[in-house]
Each structure stands twice: as C-alpha cells, then as structure tokens.
Computed example of a mutant assay.
Amino acid sequence: MDILFIADPLGHFKIYKDTTYAMMAEAARRGHTIYACEPQHLAWIGGKVEGTVQRVTIVGDEADSARSPWYEAAAPEILDLRHFGAVVMRKDPPFDMEYVTSTWLLELAERTGARIFNKPSAIRDHSEKLAIGEWPEFVVPTLVTRDAARLRSFHAEHGDVILKPLDGMGGMGVFRVKADGMNLGTIVEMLSDNGARSVMAQKFIPQIADGDKRILIIGGQAVPYSLARIPQGNEVRGNLAAGGLGRAQPLTENDRRIAETLGQTLFDRGLLLVGLDAIGDYLTEVNVTSPTCFREIMDQTGFDVAGMFIDALERAAAAQQ
C-alpha cells in the first residue's frame, strides 16, 4: 500500500536513531510505497484534504546508519489523503496551535475516508503530561496549576520537586528544586510566564538514577523491552535529547501492569502507538505525538519493534477499508 508519513524534514533525520526512519525502512522492505510531507503541506479545498507530497525511495546500504544521503525524493505532487492506505502522523512537538490545526485538518480528512494513525482527535485530546491524571494509582504526588502560591506550598510539603512546562519535549524546561528552595521563585515565574501558563510540579523520584523508562505500546500491546534513559553527570534529566544514556532492559512486573492497564484503552481510542514514561514504579507521561526509541531497543536487544509497528499498521489500515 501507499503510506504517507507526515514528519519533520527528512534531511534533518539522524537515521541511526530515528524512529520514523525505522518505520519507513521496514515498510519499504515489505514492498509498501513511501511518501512524505510536512504539516504545512496539508490543505483543505473543495471538501477534501490534500497533501503536497513526495514519493521517497530509501537508498544506500541500510547497514550504514551514518550514510548521507539516505533517500531520494521524487518531484512533489498533490494527492488527496484518501489515496493512501495509511497516513502516519509523526510530527514532533511543540504542540502549538499549528499542531492543533494539523489535527483538525487530518480529522476532516478522516471524515472523508482517510486512514490516519494516530487518530487526530486522540492526539489532540491526550495531553502528554496531563493524561496521567486518568490513572492516579500510578502517579507520584503531582500538582498542575498556574498559581505561584500553590506551587510554593507543594514544594514546602514535598521538599524535593520537579517543575516542568506542559508543552515541552526532550526534557526541555525541566527543573529540580531541592529542599533549600534555591531559585524556586525565579523558576515558577519563568515557567508560568508570571501566572499566564500552567506548570506541572511532581515530587522528585530518586529512582531517576536508574533511568526514565520509555515503555512502547503498539496496537494495545507492550513491547517486551523498555529503554531506560539514564541521566549523566549532574544532569537530572534522562532524556536522550538532554544527553541521557539509553539502556534497553526487560519490562519489570510493574511496567507490565501499567502497560496492561493503559494499553487496550488507549488503542480503543485510536492510539496505535504510545510511549509511556515511567520512573521507578510511577507513570510520568503518556506520549502520543511522535514516540521514539525504536532504534535503540532494536539495536540492543534484536527485538523487531519496527516490524511489530508495521504489522499493527497493516492490520489497522485493513480494518478501516
């Protein structure tokens, strides 16, 4: 089938670690035809949603994960999104109004018969930070507010806390404030824009030293390995984008319990791929925009995460025909 990936510019991919590349390569290996575009290439006209897309051919020795170029792109063409057997939304945050507009356009396409994964309304309705509120039994003490006094009170109660914005990714804007409260006021003012934006505060989880675990859910089922992203040096963030070291490891019993509790529910809502984040036994995020870590798990364990995803994509697309 023809598969369209809506993503960041292909020229920016670091294919040795890029999950979207892993998806594309596996789909191409199976004989599917790959197309790509960016969100700004979508348009609604005459009652249909079109994309200015390019057919993509993967070139070179796939064993060379540092090769450049890694693809050839045909001339742009305008196609109705209904043309594709599947449209995979893989644009990275920030989750701003343009991202929301993209989900609205994709939802219009979906209503005319396009097959979109993850489901646009499900992406839009699941805040990657706030979605944890649906499963409080797995959540460390947490506060979301724009009220500086409440944030100060939360810190006074718990002594050692993490503060972060609701719309960040890759560890952006994450601060730890210890019991001495050093710079608490400045951090709250900055993250909340002096009370204009809500902030998430969470009790610090010491098990971050063992890694911020990414648990992948594909088609409602857990990949049997997580990627523990371990902070390096004096860094509090384990995110790979912040310099964390990725270590693949089997799911713990509690990881499986979290995955089994959330997995089918999220899949039933149209979320084919989800990346749960957990520290110790606590769920910290539910990532639905462009979950990553395929390549690291594949390279370290040999488990074919991309194959599991394309299997699920083929089944889901067939079910919507």
Rank of each mutant, 00 (worst) to 15 (best):
P224W: 05
D277K: 10
I123K: 05
L105C: 08
R30S: 14
G133S: 14
E285P: 09
L42A: 07
V161H: 07
S192A: 12
V161E: 06
S65G: 01
R176L: 12
F138R: 11
E110Q: 09
G11K: 14
R146M: 13
D268L: 13
S290Q: 07
Y16Q: 15
T292P: 05
H126P: 00
G220H: 02
A74V: 05
G85N: 07
A319P: 08
A306L: 00
L227E: 08
D125L: 12
G170D: 11
I230K: 06
D281A: 05
D277P: 02
A317F: 10
D299M: 08
E314W: 01
G31Y: 01
Y225L: 08
D304R: 07
R82Y: 01
H32A: 11
E137I: 04
M200Y: 10
S127D: 14
T57Y: 04
E253P: 01
E50L: 15
R237H: 01
M298W: 03
F5I: 13
V188I: 15
L105Q: 12
D167Q: 11
A242Q: 12
Q232I: 01
F5R: 03
C37A: 14
F5P: 06
L166V: 05
P93W: 04
N234V: 01
G31A: 03
I187N: 03
S68K: 07
L191R: 00
E72C: 03
P94F: 09
I123G: 02
G185A: 06
R176S: 12
G270W: 02
N239S: 08
D18K: 04
L251S: 09
A319Y: 03
M182N: 13
E50M: 10
N194K: 13
N234C: 00
I132A: 09
R146E: 15
A122P: 00
D18P: 04
F138D: 14
A36T: 14
L106V: 09
A179M: 05
I58L: 15
V286D: 09
G185C: 06
Q221N: 03
D64V: 08
V87A: 10
T289K: 11
P231I: 13
P93C: 10
G185V: 06
M169I: 03
N287R: 09
H126N: 12
I116L: 10
D277R: 13
I310M: 03
R111D: 07
M23H: 12
A63E: 14
R295V: 09
E157R: 15
G220R: 00
M172A: 14
G159A: 12
T301R: 10
G51R: 04
S192I: 11
Q300R: 03
F84D: 00
V87S: 04
N239M: 10
K119Y: 06
A27K: 09
L151W: 03
A122G: 08
R82W: 00
E26Q: 14
L216G: 02
P120A: 13
E314Q: 15
V288M: 04
C37E: 02
V274Y: 04
G113Q: 08
C37F: 04
T52H: 05
T284H: 02
E110S: 08
D160S: 10
H83G: 08
L151P: 00
S290V: 06
D147F: 05
P94D: 13
G244V: 03
A86L: 13
Q202G: 09
F204S: 00
R256M: 13
C37L: 11
G219K: 05
D8Q: 12
T301Y: 14
L79W: 02
